[in-house]
Simulated assay, not measured.
Amino acid sequence: MDIALLQHAAQEAGQLLRALANDDRLLLLCQLSQGERSVSELEALTGIRQPTLSQQLGILRQKGLVQTRREGKRIYYQVVDETALAILQLLYQRYCPAPQGDST
């Protein structure tokens, strides 16, 4: 195995895990892993107030994990990093409670 390739992969994995290692960002990404959401939807779903919400979404955008789409005055976010999405889907299955009445 090429140690330089392993080091590079470990660096990339570490950067992704650091981006995920924040409760607010993880909560936002958890919601976004289920589909595109507007800023107002994210605020309502997560309870994260606007200043913090904007700050954390900015970090996620800067890290290349999400991208935006503007429709009129609304801004929509979606997860674009496939590796992050795979991790988020696993975390969602393991940690997010099933809706009431859903026995699966």
Rank of each mutant, 00 (worst) to 15 (best):
Q93F: 11
L17K: 12
K73R: 15
A44P: 06
Y76L: 12
I75W: 05
A19M: 09
L57V: 07
P97H: 08
A9I: 00
V39T: 15
T46D: 02
A10Q: 14
Y92S: 14
I75R: 12
A86H: 12
Q7F: 14
A98C: 09
A84T: 08
T104R: 15
L20W: 05
L6R: 11
G58M: 06
Q89D: 04
S33M: 04
E82C: 09
G47D: 03
G72D: 08
Q50T: 13
V39F: 13
M1E: 12
L28M: 05
R61P: 00
Y92M: 10
L65S: 07
A86R: 15
L28Y: 05
R25Y: 06
K63H: 12
I48G: 01
R94E: 10
D102A: 06
T68N: 08
Y76E: 07
H8R: 15
Q78H: 10
L32C: 03
Q7K: 14
E43R: 13
A84E: 02
V79A: 07
L88W: 06
K73Q: 13
G64K: 06
Q11W: 08
Q31R: 13
L32G: 02
T83D: 01
Q93I: 09
Y77G: 02
L20G: 01
Q100T: 08
P99C: 03
V39Y: 08
L85S: 09
L85Y: 02
R61Y: 01
L88K: 07
L85K: 08
D2M: 13
T83M: 10
L17G: 00
Q62A: 14
S103N: 14
L42S: 02
L5M: 08
E43Y: 07
R61I: 00
R70I: 06
P97W: 05
S103D: 09
L28C: 04
T52D: 08
G14T: 11
Q62H: 12
L42W: 02
T46F: 03
Q11V: 13
T104F: 00
Q62T: 12
K63Y: 11
V80M: 01
A19Q: 05
L85D: 05
T46R: 02
E41V: 04
S33W: 05
E71Y: 09
Q15R: 15
D24T: 11
L28N: 05
L32I: 02
L53S: 07
G35P: 00
R74D: 05
L17V: 11
R94V: 06
Y92A: 12
T104C: 01
Y95D: 00
